[in-house]
Design a protein around this nucleic acid. Structure first.
Ligand SMILES: [Mn+2]
Ligand SMILES: [Mn+2]
Ligand SMILES: [Mn+2]
Ligand SMILES: [Mn+2]
Lengths: 218, 218
DNA sequence: AATTATTTTTAGACTTATCTAAAAATAATT
DNA sequence: AATTATTTTTAGATAAGTCTAAAAATAATT
């Protein structure tokens, strides 16, 4: 039996460990979980006890195979629920995360497999993130950050790095959604801002925006 | 802020207090919650502190207006989710209760109002129980127990008293569902069993079954 | 009315998850 | 290499919810 809190720690460790081969540090987990390092140490000991993580004092943690399984299953549930909220209940993509944070902890195999079928086996969530399949496999698409695209590149928006409500609302306001086609017109070396063209309209976005938008070059 | 445990206690008190004008006893709550009377006393003090219940030592509890509001909202969520599971995810009526027990605690106004709309504002859950509307109003239908019907009555099944998986599976096996029409052919005084006719087929059910099936006499 | 049985409450302990403050280990600087 | 800064862990405390065992109140019987 695994508690809701344990699930959240495992998910945090999973997301923090995804990039880079190093172990995940106590402080990084504390920041992600909005808790104190001492609380993390306690929990990490328990997770280690239960063999969800490998842990050596002062050396940080990494998920075991068992831990990864659990993490991926939570991510799968989270993203399927996000699709449900947008596709069936008319939520917008900036309103779904907090509800999905709750729904991801509902325990029922059948619920998730039926939801998956009901949604017709979606491969990506409303933020462009891949949805692990039943066996935990995750399909990676070759996306790059818009900030890495070259002048003249024809791109299509496929995901966001930052899925905060603020950023998503900014994109809405500027008519940028997943599937939107754009062309890179100019990259300003001074501030790394990028001028893009959507349909016939040209406009300039800051480097910060370009750094949080994933595109596929076509 | 209200905890999941508090919500479950409030819901239990609501269901126990629905019939009869007396206060709900500590022991009754303990039985319903599968916990010890001493734990109930502790919790009831807290609920009283937060003004969800009226409580005087040794006198049992009753919900305040605030407590009733919360209870009805949980019941509403529970039943809407049950409809969702059956109508959209192809669950059968004996598989939904435990999942709904989890889903009823998800906190999001919008989630429930959108779910309600998505399901086209259902008035009853898959067990025939009424779904409170947004404002908490509950429509009562005039149903009676099959055991109370008279010989010769033409009835239609509209609900179950016991919604345990065992009972529901029994009904499935005997082709009794909500909406099924039946006629009372005979009532055996010795054991209070009842002979009913469904379509052309006649068969006898025990008093225990008849005591857990709600019908409307047409 | 007195005794017995049942229900309810209290007292004290335990678990989970959290915190602060202090100690220990590791990393970064001089 | 020694000092300083940062990170991590330990120690001890707190809050929520639970438990057992014992005491107190209420209800039922004689
Ligand atoms: Mn999310
Ligand atoms: Mn997402
Ligand atoms: Mn139910
Ligand atoms: Mn029901």
């Amino acid at each position: 039996m695994i508690t809701l809190t344990e699930e959240n720690y495992i998910k945090a460790i999973y997301h923090l460990g995804k990039y880079g081969v190093n172990n995940v540090s106590t402080n990084a987990i504390a920041k992600e979980m909005e808790t104190k390092a001492s609380s993390v140490t306690d929990m990490v000991k328990k997770l280690s006890e239960k063999e969800y993580v490998d842990y050596k004092k002062y050396q940080g943690v990494s998920l075991t195979a068992k831990g990864i399984d659990i993490a991926i299953n939570i991510v799968r549930k989270h993203r399927l629920w996000e699709v449900f909220l947008v596709e069936k209940l008319n939520f917008s993509w900036d309103e779904i995360h907090d509800v999905a944070e709750q729904l991801e902890h509902i325990k029922s195999e059948k619920l998730i497999s039926q939801l998956d079928a009901f949604l017709e086996y979606p491969t990506h969530d409303p933020h462009g993130d891949p949805i692990p399949d039943k066996s935990g496999k995750i399909k990676k698409i070759d996306k790059i950050l818009l900030s890495e695209a070259q002048i003249g590149d024809d791109c299509i928006c496929v995901g966001v790095q930052d899925s905060s409500s603020e950023f998503l609302k900014y994109l809405d306001k500027n008519c940028i959604a997943l599937g939107t086609e754009l062309k890179v017109i100019h990259k300003e070396p001074f501030d790394n801002s990028i001028t893009i063209q959507i349909l016939t309209k040209e406009f300039t976005i800051s480097n910060m925006i370009a750094n949080n938008l994933f595109v596929k070059v076509s």
